[in-house]
Write a protein that binds this DNA or RNA. Sequence first.
DNA 1: CACCATTACCGAACATAATTCGGCTGCCGG
DNA 2: CCGGCAGCCGAATTATGTTCGGTAATGGTG
Lengths: 150, 150
Amino acid sequence: MDELDSALLRLLQQDGRRTNRDLAEKLGIAPSTCLERVRALRERGALLGFHAEVDLTALNRGLQAMIAVRVRPPTRAVIEQFQDFVARMPEVLSVFVLTGTDDFLIHVAVRDADHLHSVVLDKLTERQELADVRTSVVYGHLRKNVIEPM
Amino acid sequence: MDELDSALLRLLQQDGRRTNRDLAEKLGIAPSTCLERVRALRERGALLGFHAEVDLTALNRGLQAMIAVRVRPPTRAVIEQFQDFVARMPEVLSVFVLTGTDDFLIHVAVRDADHLHSVVLDKLTERQELADVRTSVVYGHLRKNVIEPM
DNA sequence: CACCATTACCGAACATAATTCGGCTGCCGG
DNA sequence: CCGGCAGCCGAATTATGTTCGGTAATGGTG
């Protein structure tokens, strides 16, 4: 994991569709070398994959919320079962499993306030193991690249 | 935004490096048509970009935490200034601006517990506007694709 | 119902890029 | 000093992206 590798990861994070030639040129190495480097990063597991970023508004899911949840009892079985359930909900963007007062943070993207309401009341609150729910609307969500630009 | 478009977004979300030919074949359309569709999605802003996913452990930042923050006073000026500050911290993965009791949720990835400690005590707590901080360690973080697989 | 205009689609030709591979270089251990 | 190894390179090959003119489908209009 030298300087070249992190430069590659940084560039591919900013734009995962940069061509191999482009990358090679920016780093001052041959395309074949660059290809080999990227392949090695994938094999080592440092580079997990490439994903398109989709605009939520374009999908009619412009309203985001963060739902803090406590389950009871907080045993492994209950936590895993609840996590599985939440992961299957189409409104869910991501699930954080936490220490502390809350057991979960659920990041959701929904159509509108009614939709959010129904997600919380009709889907989540139906669960027996759910002990506490607190919903916050997300005004803004800034996502950074893991490796800082130079 | 028809069925073809969302199929494209779904596939590109799973793997942003699928070749155009590949996509076209899977959808049963010509490569040139597929290319035009993807271009249209980008121009419309539905498809925002492509990004590499990097393994945090490989970067020696295997410990994640969620930091809930309240600032005082919660005016626009203070909130924007704090957000700018947080966004510049290299440990930060993403920042959620919230309604509710907490003003921010800060998702960080750090080397170890000492690093986390220093982020909270040496960097965050230094800020005058900071009224309240609660840190939770993240055991697991499941990220889903926005569009469900079929 | 016929007409036109518009849009989406296709396939072939062309341009660009990915990938392979044999060989070269420099570094390390013996 | 000298194998042996790992990383790198560049040219040849293969695959892919991209453009563009033509064609079929669509939808609105007289």
